[in-house]
Amino acid sequence: MTGEVALSVKNLKTFFYTNNRCNKAVNGVSFDIKKGRTLCVVGESGCGKSVTASTIMQLLPSLSRIEEGSITYHAEAGDIRIDQLDRDGKEMRRIRGSEIAMIFQDPMTALNPVYTIGFQIGESLKYHTDLSAKARHAKVVDLLANMGIPEPERRAKEYPHKYSGGMRQRALIAMAMSCNPKILIADEPTTALDVTIQAQIFRLMDELKEQHGTAIMLITHDMGVVAELADEVIVMYMGNIVEAGTVDDILRRPKHPYTRALLDSIPVLGRGRNQDIKSIRGATPDPYQRPKGCQFSPRCDFATETCSAMPDEEYITETHRVSCHHYKDISQHD
């Protein structure tokens, strides 16, 4: 069953309408999330990766909407079109937390300060299971213990401010995993944490994937994390997927100039201090003044006039796709 598609996104467009402008935050993305696999979404801030995640959970702010495309959740009982569900309707609420769960960037603010950790984890169980109060408490303690929190019985009765950052993120993962969701969406879960804690959290997520066959969508901007955890990768830039493939496709055979630039900008351990680290020239464009055609063209070394038209997605192999007019010429340079 590993490898089966758990959720598929087709040509998804999510636009924001704040300040009387229209920001095409996500402009036509398609991908699948598979059971027992980790899909990493990479890209710099503002590229639409978090918006994609919020769209799947229908957690968008009120001044935004899904314009086009579909999000299909392949549940055991049959397919569910998430994009057609009412944002806060009964069905969407049932899916949230029990079928698809999410953990957030900043564990410091993601927990309610005035309730105990146990209460907040138990809340999920209360709404998605028929467990009695006693059984819920036992389950909470169990979950905390599984996340490696010492003295879970006592810790469950404590308030978030007594937890360290790493422990809070574990508590949030415990909360997300409480109802055995089929899909776990993690939005930069370790950005706010120490590097050593980071490794622990990722190990934990990897274990969950192995043990429960959970499909994981991990949003990050850290290529090191990608190399470590990902089975599949999609690279986003300005609301589009520029390149997608298996982790080998992307890290070893990158085709899109943006992916290549992204990889070139990372220092590699062991190459010494004289290694050549290139930064990407220029800056991310203003989302309200997008370039025509390929969004990366103004910053791209290989851009030509053809780039003022939007490139189509081309499949290089069955798993590896890229949207660039010139990817063939570029790979000849290698």
Binding site: F15, Y17, C22, E67, Y288
Partner: peptide
């Protein structure tokens, strides 16, 4: 939303 989008796409904003 439709109105804003139409204006945005016409490049009028």
């Amino acid at each position: 939303f439709d109105r804003i989008r139409a204006l945005e796409e016409a490049g009028e904003l």
